[in-house]
């Protein structure tokens, strides 16, 4: 499964983010663990990509490296036309602030800020004037208009995740990275969040990369990448739950799991 093969499928045109020969090694000598093993992958603008794989497959490492939270041992990550490996710590932070959106599994919000303040947090950190029309639209789309003044502890888990998604979209980032965004939610609430994320891709041409181990969540994506042992093993386009489950059961996914990272 190479990048070239993906290209042949023709729908996406612009690459929003890509990793080239991405290699991440933890530890040294005997205890050395290869978390990412020369991964080449591109994420296309306006596409919803899910990354799946068992624990230790390297999917979190891949996402963290792509998102500028972690640095590669070798190879490079490019967001838009910016090479992350060339950036200083400060520039990397500024890139996260302006070019990247985040949705985490839990603890997405700052407890001392209201929902609205949480949504505009990355913009406020940059002191730039927020695009209020856009934010209004995002807020309306996630159905939070009447909850904006509330603190996170006054919101339900689902509402909190919706605020998180709204925040990720608020600065119109190049890529939104979501790490198990529905992992702590019941299935109905989770479905609403995933629906919303898919809508953001369809309606606003937003690029979203989501790490998940939940086949149902992955089925909302346009494309699913399967990782194992630090390598991309296979890929699905326009998946559904069944095709994902089938792919997960295929020998390519289960092979040599024992050598994976803990």
């Amino acid at each position: 499964m190479t990048m070239l093969e993906s290209r042949t499928q023709a729908i996406p045109e612009v690459v929003a983010a890509r990793a080239e020969q991405a290699r991440k090694v933890y530890g040294e000598g005997e205890t050395q663990v290869v978390a990412l093993d020369s991964v080449d992958v591109s994420f296309f603008a306006g596409e919803f990509t899910a990354i799946m794989g068992p624990s230790g497959s390297g999917k979190s490492t891949l996402m963290h490296s792509l998102a500028g939270l972690d640095r590669l041992t070798s190879g490079r990550v490019v967001i838009g036309d910016v090479d992350l490996s060339q950036l200083s710590e400060r520039d990397l932070t500024l890139l996260r602030r302006t070019k990247i959106g985040f949705v985490f599994q839990a603890f997405n919000l700052i407890p001392t800020l209201t929902a609205e303040e949480n949504i505009t947090l990355p913009i406020d950190l940059g002191r730039a004037a927020p695009d209020m029309a856009w934010i209004d639209e995002v807020v309306r789309a996630v159905g939070l208009s009447d909850r904006l003044g509330h603190k996170p502890n006054e919101l339900s888990g689902g509402q909190q995740q919706r605020v998180a998604v709204a925040r990720a979209l608020a600065s119109r980032p190049q890529v939104v990275f979501a790490d198990e965004p529905t992992g702590n939610l019941d299935s109905t609430t989770g479905a609403a969040i995933l629906d919303f994320m898919r809508n953001a891709v369809r309606q606003y041409h937003q690029t979203i990369v989501m790490v998940t181990h939940d086949p149902v969540a992955a089925s909302y994506a346009d494309r699913v990448l399967f990782l194992a042992d630090g390598q991309i093993r296979s890929e699905l386009r326009d998946p559904n739950t069944d095709s994902i489950l089938a792919a997960l059961r295929s020998p390519a996914q289960t092979a040599s799991n024992d050598s994976g990272r803990n």
Binding site: A67, L69, E89, R90, T93, L94, R96, R97, T98, F102, F104, F107, N108, L109, I110, P111, L121, P122, L125, G126, R167
Partner: peptide, 16 residues
């Protein structure tokens, strides 16, 4: 710790 991590992730600089 987690809160600070989140702030840093979404773009708070060290100086901030």
């Amino acid at each position: 710790t987690r809160e600070l991590g989140l702030l840093r992730a979404v773009g708070m600089t060290r100086r901030q």
